[in-house]
Simulated scan of single mutants.
Amino acid sequence: MISTRIENKEAFRFIGFKTVLAEGTSIHDTRYSPLKTAFFKSMIEGGHMATLRPLSESNYGFAAVAREPDGIYYYAGVPSMQPVPSSADELPFPQSEYLVLSGSGGLSRLAFDRLEDYAFGSVLNDEYEYVYNGNPIAEVLLNGNPMDAEVEVWVPVIKRG
């Protein structure tokens, strides 16, 4: 079951490693899923995420999708105000209202995909009072268990019109 709500979130700074999502041009595309999975797995297996964990200001697991001038990027990282490691990048999340989608059960990647598909395929339609504002989207693993995940997706929005 998917639950949704609008929530105001304070600005935060995200630091992490990124990769371009070359398969699409929109912020949400179903072709991104295997690319996201492979990248995040490589960041864990290569020990990159372990270098960020001590810098994290949250117990949750984070990833992000962002539109940048030269493409759509996927980030694996943590929220932190610590200095950015030399091989990592910084991604600011501005204060905003967010469409927060929550779900649970199954693999984290599949849960994130389900929530993002629901956000962009069902909720953010022409009748909804909010629209996506173009800022980064957060994927948040709440329970630390990617095999039986409890997750949220935070889509930044503004009121329509």
Rank of each mutant, 00 (worst) to 15 (best):
I2P: 02
S3L: 13
T4Y: 10
T4V: 12
E7C: 05
N8L: 14
K9F: 07
K9A: 11
A11M: 13
R13Y: 03
R13C: 06
I15W: 03
G16Q: 07
F17Y: 14
T19A: 15
V20R: 15
A22P: 03
A22D: 15
E23H: 06
E23S: 15
S26L: 09
I27A: 02
H28N: 12
D29K: 07
R31I: 10
P34E: 07
L35V: 09
L35T: 13
K36C: 11
T37L: 07
T37W: 07
A38G: 06
F40M: 09
K41A: 11
M43F: 01
M43C: 14
E45S: 08
E45N: 10
G47E: 12
M49K: 05
A50S: 14
L52N: 00
L52I: 05
R53A: 15
R53H: 12
P54R: 04
L55D: 02
S56M: 01
N59L: 08
N59I: 10
N59Y: 06
Y60I: 00
Y60S: 00
G61K: 02
F62W: 07
A64Y: 00
A64E: 10
A64H: 06
A64M: 11
A64N: 05
V65W: 04
A66Q: 05
A66I: 04
R67A: 07
R67W: 07
R67P: 01
R67F: 04
E68P: 07
E68A: 03
D70C: 07
G71E: 09
I72A: 03
I72Q: 02
Y74T: 00
Y75D: 09
A76N: 08
G77T: 02
G77W: 01
V78P: 03
P79G: 02
S80N: 01
S87M: 08
D89Q: 09
E90P: 00
L91E: 01
P92L: 11
F93Y: 04
Q95E: 15
S96D: 04
S96Y: 04
E97Q: 13
Y98M: 02
L99Y: 11
V100N: 09
L101T: 01
S102C: 08
G103D: 03
S104E: 15
L107Q: 13
R109M: 14
R109L: 15
F112T: 01
D113G: 03
D113T: 08
D117W: 08
D117E: 10
Y118V: 10
Y118K: 08
Y118R: 10
Y118H: 15
F120M: 03
F120I: 14
G121Q: 11
N125I: 10
N125T: 11
D126E: 14
D126F: 03
D126W: 01
Y128L: 10
Y128A: 03
Y128R: 08
Y130N: 08
V131G: 02
N133W: 09
G134D: 11
P136N: 02
A138P: 03
N143I: 04
N143C: 01
G144E: 13
G144C: 12
G144Y: 08
N145F: 02
P146L: 12
M147N: 10
M147R: 04
E152G: 09
V153C: 13
V155I: 15
V155S: 08
V157D: 12
V157N: 13
V157R: 09
I158Y: 09
R160W: 02
R160T: 10
R160Q: 01
G161M: 13
G161I: 06
G161L: 11
